[in-house]
Computed example of a mutant assay.
Amino acid sequence: MGDKLKEAVEKIFQPLAKLLIKAEITYGEASDLLKVALVKTASEKLSQSNEQITDTRIHLITGVHRKDVRRIKEGEDSTPHTQSNGPITSQAFAKWLGDTRFQNSDGDPRPLCKKSSGTQEGFEELINSISKDVRPKAVLDEMLSRKMVVVNTRGLIEPSLENIIANQPADDAAKYLGMNIHDHLEVAVNNLSDTADKQLERCAHYFGLSESAAQELENFSKEIGMTALLKINEKAQALIRDPKNHGNWDTNFGVYSYKSKQATKKDAK
């Protein structure tokens, strides 16, 4: 591994270390998690190359002791893990924001009746279009309790966009953290390889700014980032409505904005 790549890995570990400390995950536990990831990834690599998967080969590739390799392999769940579509509340918001059946003429999410009214579909139809295994009233009660929606003076249900993320359950937030960081790293790592199938991974970064300029750029990034996410969601909802577009592929488009104060010699003391 080159020095620059080592520096990159060390930089990746820094926010991960913050997460481990916050979650009270010790070095020993983190080391075990890393061993599992190394063994599973090495096994997948050998399998894709149609090579024999042995404890010795995995040990030579990863440096993980053979007894640990054997323990990890024996403890693997043979049942295939399926990717869930996420909480039904999140799916409901995505459809509400992007499906024309639940939007007004301006393309904004339309306040919904509890049931369909005339030609307009209501909240019950929104939930039933996602799953008929859960009662719409139960979903509504959950969304009301988390202040994700409000009932206005006309008795219509409106989304409370500012509370979607703020009141997200810890387990849901952890799931999206794992998914988003995993997917971003997968793209970045794969793009380092000599492959023609490079995926989108770009950034615009600037140094030496004033605090006010950095804040202005962050605010602008949030504005155009949310616009991009809403446009992607509208396109996805239109595709999903056609059964011929259903299959076993996943896609993830994300945005983030990060700002920090550069450390000075005085700060470092």
Rank of each mutant, 00 (worst) to 15 (best):
A268M: 15
I165R: 14
E186S: 15
W249A: 05
D77K: 06
I130S: 01
F13D: 04
E186H: 07
G254N: 05
K235M: 12
S221N: 07
T264K: 05
V139N: 00
Y206S: 02
I165K: 05
E218P: 10
L177R: 08
P169A: 14
G254K: 04
V39E: 03
A23G: 14
D267F: 08
S221A: 14
K222P: 15
G118N: 15
A236D: 01
D32Q: 10
H205F: 06
I157D: 00
D141S: 01
K45T: 13
Q48A: 13
C113W: 03
V139H: 00
Y206V: 12
Q14T: 10
D242W: 09
S145N: 11
Q199V: 10
F253K: 10
A188S: 08
T82C: 07
E162S: 09
P136R: 01
N233S: 04
P87A: 06
S90A: 06
D77R: 04
T26K: 11
T26I: 09
E44Y: 13
Q168V: 11
P80C: 10
T62P: 02
A37N: 15
E125Q: 03
K115G: 15
K259T: 08
S117H: 12
D106T: 05
M143D: 02
G225M: 04
K235I: 15
M148N: 01
K244Q: 08
G107V: 09
T56Y: 06
I224S: 11
T26R: 15
A138K: 01
S31I: 15
E201G: 06
V139Y: 00
T82S: 08
L161Y: 05
V39P: 00
V64N: 00
D172T: 14
T56L: 09
G178P: 13
A238L: 10
H184R: 04
Q103D: 05
V150L: 07
G254C: 11
I224E: 08
P111V: 10
G254I: 12
M143L: 14
S47H: 14
E211P: 03
R146H: 14
S84Q: 10
G225K: 03
S193A: 07
A30M: 15
P243W: 09
S31N: 07
V69G: 00
S31P: 06
D141A: 01
G122D: 00
D108W: 11
